[in-house]
Amino acid sequence: MSNSVLDVINNRTSLRVYDNREISQEILDKILHAAMRAPTAGNQMLYSILVVRDEQTRKLLSQSCDHQAFIATAPVILIFLADHQRWFDYYQLNGVAEYCDREGLRFEAPQESDLLLAIEDAMAAAQNAVIAAESLGIGSCYIGDIVENYEFHKELFDLPDWAFPIGMLCLGYYRENHLKKPRERFDKQYIVFEEKYKHLSPEEYQQMFAQREQTFHEDNPYHADNFAQAFYARKTGASFSKEMARSVRVAMKAWDGRLLNPKAPNKR
């Protein structure tokens, strides 16, 4: 069983080399509209989308996002912000702090749970944008490294405390005769469980990673003895991951659920 939507999903791959064609505003608007039709908690739309076309900004992002040169060549970049700032600005404008004071409620700043909910909204919107773009012949590549270098990105995009850059998409047309090679995913039996979580056995882990372990080379630059060790060194334990962790810790300091002063704007 297949249809055009499933075909788009199944054939989509990350694109890092783009054709020398601009994405028109009309086409971009279709992608953004699709993003904004994504599911959202309580119809709050707890995200904002930054559209980046400026060449200098794209060059800066290619450096700040783990030195990936191809980022600068993408005609359009979309940055998805997990955003509670807009709702809390609205609350401030409409006397919610005073209302809470009058009714004995706690008027609290956004906290960790609010950030997680906004992330869900933002990434649902981002994936809608990916599928819409793909259906229009426009490839994409997720850049998770936008969560690194929080202070730099906060200043670059004039971000308030409660708008956190959680995802970034590079968009561009496929080059003529581009050959798509969808990468193999783990088998469903290791990812999808019925009713309760399943702890995999050593044998199942061996089967799950068998294909990827074939890519391991003993003369690797990490002095690793196996695929797991090499992958940890390249990804999980790498310097960019440590920077990502540091950056998120800095950003999280604002999402603390502190009581807000009903008599003055909340400025940090």
Rank of each mutant, 00 (worst) to 15 (best):
K59C: 04
G237D: 06
I23H: 08
E98A: 13
L61G: 04
R86P: 10
D29W: 00
I146G: 07
A35T: 02
V51F: 14
R86N: 05
H33K: 09
N128F: 11
K196T: 13
R106K: 13
A82G: 07
E134M: 06
E134P: 11
L260W: 08
D83K: 06
A264K: 15
M168G: 06
K267F: 10
M168A: 09
K154W: 02
A125I: 03
I31P: 07
I77V: 15
M168Q: 13
L78G: 03
I49A: 09
Q92R: 13
L136M: 14
I143N: 09
T215A: 14
M36H: 11
K235S: 12
E218I: 05
D89Q: 11
L81Q: 05
R16V: 07
D114R: 04
M123L: 15
N149K: 13
A97T: 04
N20F: 08
N11A: 08
G257Q: 04
R16Q: 13
L6K: 13
A133T: 05
S24G: 08
I191P: 04
T73W: 02
A245K: 11
R268T: 11
D83E: 03
D158C: 07
D29L: 02
N149D: 06
W255S: 06
A210I: 01
S201E: 08
S247F: 08
Q127H: 14
P160S: 03
L169K: 04
C65D: 10
E26R: 05
Q189S: 07
H33D: 08
F88W: 14
F193V: 01
Q68F: 12
W162E: 02
A38Y: 11
F88D: 02
I49F: 12
D121F: 06
I49K: 13
F107M: 06
R106I: 09
M45K: 13
G95V: 02
S201I: 03
K198I: 07
A69V: 12
R249F: 10
S241D: 01
E204N: 07
Q25S: 08
L32Q: 02
R185K: 15
N20K: 15
D114W: 03
D83R: 10
M45F: 10
D121W: 09
K30Y: 02
E194Q: 14
Q206N: 13
A74W: 13
A97C: 02
N261M: 05
S62A: 15
S247Y: 08
M252G: 01
Q92C: 00
Y142A: 08
V17D: 15
Q206W: 03
Q111V: 00
N261S: 09
S135F: 07
H67G: 01
L81F: 06
A129D: 01
K181W: 00
K267S: 09
Q229K: 12
E213Y: 00
Y232T: 01
W162S: 02
A38F: 11
K180S: 15
D219C: 02
F209L: 15
R102H: 10
E148H: 05
L60V: 10
Y232M: 12
L28E: 03
G104E: 09
A126M: 15
V17C: 11
F80N: 12
R58A: 04
E243L: 11
R53H: 05
